[in-house]
């Protein structure tokens, strides 16, 4: 089965972060609270669909779809 990333999450779906594909993104995402083993909830897409509104550990964070693609979930 292919790997699923945060970008594949449906609205309201939750998943656990497994690993990060891109180091430069990962370094920044960690400081915003996206770390391995954290649970992510996909809250909604942006009005034009290119960005995602996520909930992680009681915080809200917005990511672009391609940034979300680099975060693999289990």
């Amino acid at each position: 089965m292919t790997q699923r990333s945060i970008a594949d999450l449906k609205k309201g779906e939750r998943a656990q972060i497994l690993k990060f594909l891109q180091n430069d993104f990962a370094a920044k995402l960690h400081t915003l609270g996206l770390k391995p083993n954290e649970t992510v909830e996909m809250v909604r897409l942006s009005p034009f669909g290119q960005a995602m509104y996520l909930k992680i550990n009681d915080q809200f964070v917005a990511l672009r779809k391609e940034e979300a693609h680099t975060v693999i979930i289990s």
């Binding site: 430069d24 920044k28 995402l29 915080q59 809200f60 964070v61 917005a62 990511l63 672009r64 940034e67």
Partner: peptide, 11 residues
């Protein structure tokens, strides 16, 4: 240079 959104949405 890479471009980022990655932004905190504070309460």
């Amino acid at each position: 240079e890479p471009s980022f959104l990655m932004i905190e949405l504070p309460q």
